[in-house]
């Protein structure tokens, strides 16, 4: 059962997102659109097997929901903070700068999601990650306390992402 499933749908999440994307683009759920979406979804999964990338294993849906909420709140907060820095430059207390964060996560999908989270919150940008030393280099717009940033990244995001992906 499981092997047959893997053969037909090697990347279930990818196939599902292609399916939904096609329906959204078509804006219809007619049988024709559904059929074509299914064909595309299956084909997309098979094409990906040629790249040989492992399919991500995702656990704990509740943690995903919580993480999404946290990220949304953080995006709103840092949008306001960065807007304030731009409009009133004197209100800034720290200075811009690079800093290194030691990471424990090694899962490539988890790291990709962390990169998206860090870069989409204004004020921090993921610059480089060295997989050999596990050090991540980020640039922070308002850098006051490096330890605070390290704690935020590790406790708020990395811990939850490790729960989801590892």
């Amino acid at each position: 059962m499981s092997r047959a499933f893997r053969r037909v749908l090697p990347y279930p999440l990818l196939s599902l997102s292609i399916f939904v994307m096609w329906l959204l683009l078509n804006q219809s759920v007619t049988p024709a659109a559904l059929t074509f979406a299914a064909v595309l979804a299956l084909g997309g999964g098979w094409v990906m097997t040629a790249l040989g990338q492992e399919s991500p294993r995702i656990r704990r849906p509740w943690t995903i929901v919580k993480l999404l909420g946290i990220v949304f709140v953080d995006i709103v907060h840092s949008n306001i903070a960065v807007a304030r820095i731009i409009l009133r430059p004197k209100s800034r207390r720290g200075a811009p700068g690079f800093m290194a964060v030691p990471l424990d996560m090694r899962d490539p999908y988890g790291l990709a999601v962390l990169a998206i989270v860090l870069t989409s919150t204004p004020g921090t940008i993921w610059t480089n990650f060295s997989s050999s030393s596990g050090m991540l280099l980020i640039h922070v717009l308002d850098l006051q306390d490096e330890q605070m940033w390290i704690d935020t990244i590790k406790n708020r995001y990395e811990r939850r992402l490790m729960e989801i992906f590892e």
């Binding site: 949008n79 960065v82 807007a83 731009i86 811009p96 004020g123 640039h139 717009l141």
Partner: peptide
Amino acid sequence: LIGSIGLLRLKSFYERVHAPTLGATL
């Protein structure tokens, strides 16, 4: 608009990189 103003006003390139994220996210 605030993000794009930041692109004009901030001093160095590495500061300016943060500004357009405002428009691109929220």
